[in-house]
Every structure is written in structure tokens, then in C-alpha cells.
Design a protein around this nucleic acid. Sequence first.
RNA 1: GCCGGAGUGGCGAAAUUGGUAUACGCGCACGACUCAAAAUCGUGUGGAGCAAUCCAUGAGAGUUCGAGUCUCUCCUCCGGCACCA
Length: 838
Amino acid sequence: MASYDPNIIEPKWQTYWEEKKLFAAADRSSKPKYYCLIEFPYPSGEGLHVGHPRPYTALDVLARKRRMQGYNVLYPIGFDAFGLPTENYAIKTGAHPQTITERNVATFTAQLKALGLSFDWDRQVVTTDPAYYRWTQWIFLKLFEHGLAYKAKMPINWCPSCRIGLANEEVAGGACERCGTAVEQREKEQWLLKITRYADRLADDLAPVDYPERIKTQQINWIGRKEWIDIDYPVVGTNESVVVSTTRPDTNFGATFVVLAPEHPLVSAEKGLIPAERRKAVEQYIAAARKKTDQERMAEGRKKTGVFAGLYGLNRLNNKQLPIWISDFVLTTVGTGAVVGVPGHDRRDFEFATAFGLPVIRVVVGRDGDTSDLTRIEQVQEAEGTMVHSEFLDGLDIHRATAIIMDYLEKKGWGKRATRYNLRDWVFSRQRYWGEPIPLVFCGACQDKIKKQKSKSKNKEYSQGELLNPGWIAVPENQLPVALPEVKKYEPTDTGESPLATMTGWVTVTCPRCGGPARRETDTMPNWAGSNWYFLRYADPANAKALAAPDQLAYWLPVDWYNGGMEHTTLHLLYSRFIYKFLYDIKVVPESCGNEPYRKRTSHGLILGEGGEKMSKSRGNVVNPSEIVAAYGADTLRLYELFMGPFEQAIPWDTAGVRGVRRFLEKVWDTFERSELVSADHEDAAAKTLLHRTVKKVSDDIETQDYNTAVSALMILSNTLAGQPTISRSTAETFLRLLAPFAPHLAEERWRKLGHRRSIFQASWPAFDEKLIVATEITLVVQINGKVRDSLHAPADITEQVAERAARARPKIAGYLEGKQVKNIIFVPGRLINFVVE
RNA sequence: GCCGGAGUGGCGAAAUUGGUAUACGCGCACGACUCAAAAUCGUGUGGAGCAAUCCAUGAGAGUUCGAGUCUCUCCUCCGGCACCA
């Protein structure tokens, strides 16, 4: 009897599948298409992490099932290879990032192939390949051409350790998401993409797509669309006015002061509005506030500081004069940088009022009905309530009051509605070497020419992007890709210049518009640039004329099922939706779920170290998947990663659990070695029910990603089969076909041993018979007052009368009913009978 | 603070959606095989009790013949956002 040896059968079938191109997607097919996608990995120097195989195996199970169901499946793989770790390694070792990338990609490829994943390797894309990034640059040029890219000097998040500017999404708690160093604010010229122009569509178009609710809400909250009103407050005794912005104008009768951000122009020295006696205090406060970093502000917590400006604003609703204060809790980047203080119904305003002895007025009565004076912060409520002390708003619900007063203020000309978003334009340049060069040049002559032109709209010579960014000229499409040149040093500089800036020969070019002297943009794109659109390239990976042929895009899109990490919800997932919508608008990609790239999105949980802590090199708890494959086999690793717990949940690694799964596979193997297979069906009704239920359970669980219970169902079936002396051929084959997506090598081997000449993955997915799922024999539970007291075997279709008679006949039940009056009998067909007694 | 999600054996977790709580796996205990150990196989395994029984799904209340599942109040943990007005 041969024993189970994955080291022999796994490489054998991997080679066979690859040589036969069994998992290659067909460009044209009469079958329906199915596109499964996983987030392509960054090929780090550490090699594959044990977290990688979980989502890859999960969608591999799906891909294999779909093929057996008769679909033309696209399940592609590639590498997102630009990025900091490779560049940092290059700085340290002097090796070229390209060389390092090639080496890492080779390692990843070997490791991934050993897992038996059914990727279509022929369609592999690598973002650092010039034939690929040529189209990444092309997309940037299109964004530029349509006026969606602009260069601006702005305060950006600067990581002093990575020496790189970060997008808002890359900053977590004031620190660099990648290295944890505190982020500084720096003024820098950066390229930005106008993702905000798509804010509404990015929020609204989520409705029809199948994403988990938490991903949708997280994206919607990140976009943060709110209806505001900007209210004009004349500054008493001047011709000036201050525009405060609020989402809660309903509480405006409760306003007792106005607060401006320290950067607000109204209180600047140049304006000279501040009365002489307040000038010194104000200037001191502003200077101190400006010096504070974000970290210092955060460290202060909610402690409020501020200074009275000596000015008053007029609330025209009730003709009250409100003192104008300056405080750094008001942010210049939010709204108009000026707020009206309603201390009764805003916690920050309450804290401010308390700190400076300003009056507190109640204008809302909350659900608790409290109408007393507001003296404690717990009484300050913001979410629900009814208006009081607010003249014509009195008695109204706050939401209704908000709508009414917005209309009123607008009609009076005192306020103006505004839709605002939390989402900011996307900082799209990096001062680094290992990224796609931004395909633009700067030409001084063209800049002068554009600046001198009076009517820009009539200009046909320059594109929207060129008019928007005078002097910046697009590299002609036929000159793409702008390839990365060889440099001697990859080190970024503290001045924030890319190492490319030192390459004089590369930087100096002639202007494609006027032929005059020009210089290249030396910033590169962020690592998100290549991952924005990679799933489009898989449809047609070798195309040299377009990012992909329209007919191939029309055939394969949308992605039917995209699985990835939660950490990308407000990064890659949002960015790539934006880019897709843009490409849709310029008619490069087809109509797809409206204009959404992904029909269904799911996400996987992280795999943690054995103690439940995050796996990391420093903790020394990293598990190498290749070692698991060597010791237990790929089928064991695959099955274990799916069986270990709910797919969406983070879960600690447990090597003992791996051994348990290996034991299961050995048992399956031995059962097939030992058991006699007979052609005739001989299983009894109960065994048939189990088989058909397992087919249903496994089929359904793959769709709902309950892989852990699917594996458990396979184990139960296998345990039953192992106990039988003979197994019918059809049962054995059904079992193998169910097991095949999970443990493909073992299933293929046993399938062939049954005499099949074609792969099990060319066989059909098993069907089940609804009639056989229903058991003929059941265990009927007998309850007294809802407590289980007995159970009896009965035919599934037992009637209430028969059940009652049978139950009463049981001595135990008879004892319980002795001398009691039965008030009611609850009968649930096929399940239980419950006697309700006194 | 706000928005999500979750609390079930020693551990990872199941529970047909209101109907036998703890499936499946790990671990543990005992037994078989062995000179012995590992591996393997078998049996047992929520807690208390000799037993009949009783008690158990984060805590407390409620609805119901019946609640892990529904409702309310509270506690804890995880993820996201955050002086966003």
C-alpha cells in the first residue's frame, strides 16, 4: 500500500497542468467568462509570507470550481514591483533595483508555483517593465491632457525618514504609515490629481456593486460629503465680514462667539483690523500657534487655548454682537477656517466657552428631556433633539430646522450653501528613483507664451493640462515610455529632490512644442500608479498599441470577484475606482456595472503569529510558507489556511492545526488505497443524504467564503467513507470532485488512479438532488415547557397526532406529564414536539 | 467622541437563521501496538453531582411554548475615522 507523499505527486501535477496550459484563459470562447482577481503582490526581498496564500487559495478554489462549472476563467497574477523597500535595499547594497526586482520576482514565482495555484502565468504583468509602465505614463498624460493633473505648492506630509512626500491616505495618526516616523509639514511643489472631481460618483456608484457594507461605509466616510452653509457675519465697525462655515445652522440662535483659525486672513497684521490694545496679544498667539507642529497640537489633547481679537461679529438672525476669538482648534483647512461658537451643542465650543468664561445657551432639548442650564459637558448633545429659544424654529426637530434655516439664510442673502468633502486631491509625485518617471518637461519659453495669452479657452495649441500648468509640456505619446536612466546613487536628498535630478544628460531635453531648451520632471509616480489599472492589462497583456484591446476589455470586464486587504479600502481600491471612471469617461474602457471596475469585492483576515501578535521579523514569529510546503505539502497548507477560521477574520497561526489537516489528507489517501470500489450504488438512504448535503454545503460555502465549514463538511464525509468496507464509484468520484479545488494535487492523483485520462479539472462540478437532501428518518425532540426531555427516531413526515402519541408513550415523558394539565402542544414538523404544562 | 465588527469549551471555532448549544479540528486523558518512545489506531472529553438532575453562549433585564440567535441597558476587545464645526 503506497502512502501519501505530496513531495512526489505535487510537482508532478504542477508540471502537467503547466505543460497542458490547463488554466490558461481563452481570448475567445463560447463559454461564459469569469474573472477572479487577487491583489498582486509586492515582491519583497523576504519572499512569500504565510499571509499571501490565504486569499490566493480562496480565489483559487473559486476559479477551479468555476472551470468545473464550465466557465472560461481568468485568474491572473503579476507583480507590483516599484516601491521603497527595493530602493532602500539598492541604496544599502549598490545593486540596481531592476536586478533586485528580477531576483525577487523569480523567488516569488517559484514559491507561488509550488502552492499549486491555478494562475494563468502567461498573462503575468510586472509594473516595472517598461512595456507596462509605458501605459501607466500614458494614463498620466491623459489625466494631464484633461486638466486632472496640476502642480501646486502646498503643505504636504513629509516623512523625514523615507525622505518622501505622502498622500493623506498614507498618514496614520500623524506618522508615516510605512515606517512610523512622525510626519512633518513641508511646503513643496507637488503634482496632484483631481480625485475630488469624482467624489460624488465614487460615493454614489457604490450602491449597485457587491461590496461588504463596512467597505462601502468606510469609503463613503472617507469621501465625507456634507452639506454646509457659509454664513456671513459683518464685523462691527468695519466694512469687513467674516464667513463662518457650519453644518449645523439650526443651532445658530445659540451662538455666543466666533472663532477664527490663527491663519485666517481677517486677523493678519496686514489687514490691520485688530484694535491697538489687543494687537500684541493676538500677534503673540498667532506666532506661537504657527510654530506648533501637528504632534504638539495633538499632544495638548482637547485643552483649549485662544485669544480675544477685540472685534465683534453680528449675528443677523437676532442682532447679537458676538466676540471674535482666535484659536488653533479651528483648522484653516476645514470649511472657511472660521466657526461660530455654539457651546450648548458642540463639545469643542463648550470646552472653549468654559475655558474663557463665555456664556452657554440651550437651544436644543435632547431625547432625555433635560431643559436645565448646561453646566456639564455630558449635557452637551449634538445628534438629536427639538429646537427651543430659537424664535421661528421652536418646536421643530433639529433636522427639519436645519433645512428651514438654510433656506431662510440663503433667501436673505446671509448664507450660501456649499457641498464639502473630506477627500482631498491626491498627491501624486514622489522624490524617489524607483518609480515611473512623470512624462512631462518644463519649458520656460512655452511658459512665457502661455502666460501672455489672454483668452486661454480659445487656445488650441496647448492642452488643458498645459494651460493649467504653464510651462509644463507633455512628452508626446510616441516617445513613451520615458525610461528610468541608470544613476550612480539612489539616495534621495534632504532638499527633497529625486536622485534623477542629478542626471544632467537625462534631464536636459528639447521642448516637444517649441524645440527650445527644456528639462524633464524628475519626480516619479507613487507606487499606486502601477496598481491602478493592472487588472485591465491582464485582459491583453502583450498589447503594444493600447493598454489593452477594446474587444478584450469588453469581453473580460468587469472583474467578477476581487479579493484584497481591508487596508486598501481608502487607498488602492478607491484610487483604482477613480482611474477606471476616468478611463471610462475618455472611452478607453467599456461600460461595466455602470462605470465600476469590480462587480464583487471581498476581503481576507490577516494571519497572525502563534501568540496572536502580528508576524514580524523582529518578533521572530514569521512562518515561511515554503517550509510548510516542504514539510507537509501544498495541499495541507492550502487546506489549513482555509480551515483555520472564518476567512474575513484575523487568526493566529497554529502548527498543530497544520498537522491535523495533514492527518485528514492521509486518511483520505489511505481510504482510497484500502477501500474496494464497486460500480453499483449500495449506500443506504442516510449515506446518500449525507453525500448530497455535502455537495450542497461545499458548493454554497465556496460562494459565501465559508471555507472553514466547507472543509469540515468534507472531513465529515471522509470520516463516514473511511468507516465503510466498500465505496461506490460514483460516491468516490463525487467526493474527489468536491475536494479537488481545495487539495488539487491529491484529488488529481486519486482521480487518475480511478482510470480517468483527463484532468479532474476538466470534469464537471457535482450536482445534488434536492429530494435526497431531505432526510427520510429524523430525530424528533420531545420538550416539556421548552426543555429537552427526550428524543425519538421517526420518519421525517410524521404528523402531529402520531408524534404526540409516540411521545406520550415514552415512560420518561409520561412521568413528566403525570398529574399535569397539558395547556398547549407546539409541533414543529420534522423537528420537535413541545408539551406546555402547568 | 463618531462609524463598523466581535464576545460560545483548555485552544481555532460550528450551530439548517427562533427549535437537541459546543459540529469539525487542535489539545488533553486512558487503552491497544512497542523492549521503549514517536507515529498510528480505539475510547472519552463544557462545569457540578454517586445519581436523578441542575448550571452554562461577556453582564443584566425583556419578548416567546422555546433565545447563542430578536429588543433594551451596560461591560470588554478588535478595525477605521477624528478638535471636520
